[in-house]
């Protein structure tokens, strides 16, 4: 039997106040090393799907099985703790804090100078780069990226795409799910299209 990292078994999901399900009878499995991008119009549940995949939401019906806890998630809304500096935000997310790795990643995303500044002083693009760096920090087995290039200029989007590609190349087991409205990044890491609704 092929090993899977994530399995959706006849999954339904419906918000409590909705009249019809967002996801209906969806069965799918994700094998180690695969990469997928979600294809659905805006507001059709891409973020909800990612939350189901990572266990942040429970399905209304059916089962979702995960074979790893090593997950990195770049949230669409960044979610940096505003009372911490970028450096502290990264350190907090690390299972085994490693200063060298944090500084290396900060340098890669061009934010060494801002490491100790108040997070609230970061621009949207800078916060997004920290968000991506945080998702990659623990070298996750499953990387989930929700519109990771939002708010990034072309140069920084390219830098982040390279970082993601390096992480993917680092191990044949590394698995990716992403959503992005930018066509040029939809096939990042040879991602295949996934239609779920």
């Amino acid at each position: 039997m092929t090993p899977t990292i994530l399995q959706f078994q006849n999954v339904d999901f419906q918000w409590a106040d909705a009249t019809k399900p967002l996801i209906q009878n969806f069965t799918w499995s994700l094998e180690p090393g695969e990469a997928f991008y979600l294809d659905a119009p805006s507001g059709q549940g891409k973020s909800t799907f990612l939350k189901l995949a990572t266990g942040l939401l429970k399905p209304t019906r059916g089962k979702i099985l995960r074979d790893t806890k090593q997950i990195g998630f770049a949230f669409q809304d960044q979610r940096l703790l505003p009372w911490l500096t970028p450096y502290e935000n990264l350190k907090l997310a690390m299972r085994h804090p490693d200063d060298e790795q944090i500084h290396k990643l900060l340098a890669r995303v061009g934010l060494t100078q801002k490491a100790e500044q108040h997070t609230s002083t970061l621009s949207g693009g800078e916060a997004q780069r920290i968000n991506i760096a945080r998702a990659l920090l623990n070298n996750p087995l499953l990387l989930v990226l929700d519109e990771p290039f939002n708010g990034l200029d072309e140069e920084n989007a390219q830098i982040c795409a390279e970082l993601i590609q390096e992480w993917k190349n680092h191990s044949p087991e590394n698995t990716l799910i992403l959503t992005t409205h930018l066509h040029k990044f939809q096939t990042l890491c040879n991602a295949k299209k996934l239609v779920f609704s």
Binding site: G55, F73, L81, R134
Partner: peptide
Amino acid sequence: ERWFELAKIYRFSRWKHLTAIILPG
């Protein structure tokens, strides 16, 4: 609640929940 989702993904310990999210919040 989004802070607690973040904590769940990055598997914060109870202590981290308390000192990094709840008390500063």
